[in-house]
């Protein structure tokens, strides 16, 4: 591998690193797991980088590889990701501007998201990122119609978890 390749990769990643952090936020629930997943996604991105041809945007490509890595890891070690308490992250991300009820509601929302399966998490993530259905279908490798159906189901599931 040439150092030039490394340089361009690291620069791009540094610029777009928030995407990885956000994936980690939805798929992990404590600081260590967050860092582990971040590192894993970075390595997977680096491994796949020589194949990245620039026909998609770097960020779009990051969404795809990042989510795939998270999904694969989540499937491999379901227990590690899902059983730990999620409080840690919730407190770290606490926003001072919210009033108590909103804060409580957010906590419940994130907790509910952590109960979703890997694909549903990916859908929520892409929804929060304001991606349209075309981008969602490309990122997850499903049809647009399917993405729409799955998104609606996920939203319903989330509402059902929150209001049983």
């Amino acid at each position: 591998m040439s150092t030039e390749l490394e340089h361009s990769f690291v620069e791009l990643l540094e610029k777009h690193q928030n995407i990885i952090h956000k994936v980690c936020r939805l798929y992990t629930n404590n600081y260590d797991a967050h860092n582990d997943l971040f590192q894993e996604i970075t390595i997977q991105l680096w491994k796949a980088y020589p194949k990245f041809r620039g026909d998609a945007k770097f960020s779009t490509w990051m969404y795809r590889v990042g989510l795939n890595t998270a999904i694969t890891l989540y499937r491999k070690s379901k227990r590690r990701v899902s059983t730990q308490d999620f409080e840690g992250v919730a407190f770290k991300m606490k926003a001072e501007e919210y009033d108590n009820t909103e804060e409580e509601q957010l906590k419940l929302l994130y907790k509910a998201i952590h109960q979703l399966n890997d694909i549903e998490k990916a859908l929520v993530f892409l929804y929060l990122e304001d991606k349209d259905y075309r981008e969602i279908s490309e990122t997850l490798g499903i049809s647009e119609v399917n993405a729409r159906v799955k998104m609606n189901r996920t939203k319903t599931k989330l509402k059902n978890i929150l209001n049983p």
Partner: peptide
């Protein structure tokens, strides 16, 4: 509410430096 919080959190994520990312690869 979730979306609002998601957008607000944008600036709160840790910022890894070039060197930190480089060490990872």
């Amino acid at each position: 509410l979730l979306k609002k919080d998601w957008k607000k959190s944008e600036s709160k994520y840790p910022k890894l430096s070039y060197n930190e990312i480089y060490k990872m690869i």
